[in-house]
């Protein structure tokens, strides 16, 4: 996906989020949480689209899931822990949890565990830019910019300008043949 396709995908997700929130009457209670680092630009951009359409900007938080990983004991070194920043009460909110790529579902499991430690949201929706299949846990996206069939071992890279890349893009790199 090139920058233009990424932009269209973000707009489509924002539109769907808006429709569903309106239908449920939860538009005023909407809030965004991006999973560091790839999910944060997605959350920011969906929020900006919603703000443009409605004139009010929902709150935004970021989660770093390093302390909630389930594979610590299998890794050689402890993973780097980045900042988590959720400054609004979650009670009664409809949270749009955003990540760049949905794969095994383990990151989302960790993010949900972390999120509920901040409070009890009314509901949580999951928005991802790319759903690449390959789930290992019963988790699915409510909103996906693209659904790709990517073989196991291949790598899906999402690049965002906000994270220091030259331009937005989604690149699939073939992995080693099993």
């Amino acid at each position: 996906m090139n920058a233009e396709a990424v932009q269209r995908a973000v707009q489509r997700i924002a539109h769907e989020v808006l429709e569903r929130a309106r239908a449920q009457g939860s538009l005023e209670r909407l809030a965004f949480v991006g999973i560091r680092r790839g999910g944060v630009p997605l959350a920011e951009r969906i929020r900006a689209e919603i703000a443009r359409a409605t004139g009010s900007e929902p709150p935004l938080g970021t989660l770093d899931i390093a302390l909630y990983r389930d594979d610590l004991a299998e890794r050689g070194a402890a993973p780097v822990v980045g900042p988590t920043d959720v400054r609004f009460p979650l009670e009664g909110r409809t949270i749009v949890l955003a990540d760049d790529v949905l794969y095994t579902g383990r990151t989302i499991r960790a993010a949900l565990d972390e999120l509920v430690d901040f409070g009890r949201p009314r509901r949580v929706w999951l928005a991802v830019l790319v759903d690449r299949g390959g789930r290992e846990l019963p988790i699915s996206a409510d909103f996906a910019g693209a659904r790709l069939e990517v073989p196991e071992g291949a790598d899906v890279q999402v690049r965002w300008r906000e994270n220091g890349d030259a331009e937005d893009s989604v690149v699939v790199r073939e992995g080693r043949k099993p």
Partner: peptide, 22 residues
């Protein structure tokens, strides 16, 4: 630098993360 992230955990409503479980 890591302690900066750890300090944020101490300001949360639930001051517990599962990273060193077991």
């Amino acid at each position: 630098d890591l302690a900066v992230s750890m300090k944020e955990v101490l300001s949360r409503p639930v001051k517990k993360v599962p990273s060193l479980r077991g």
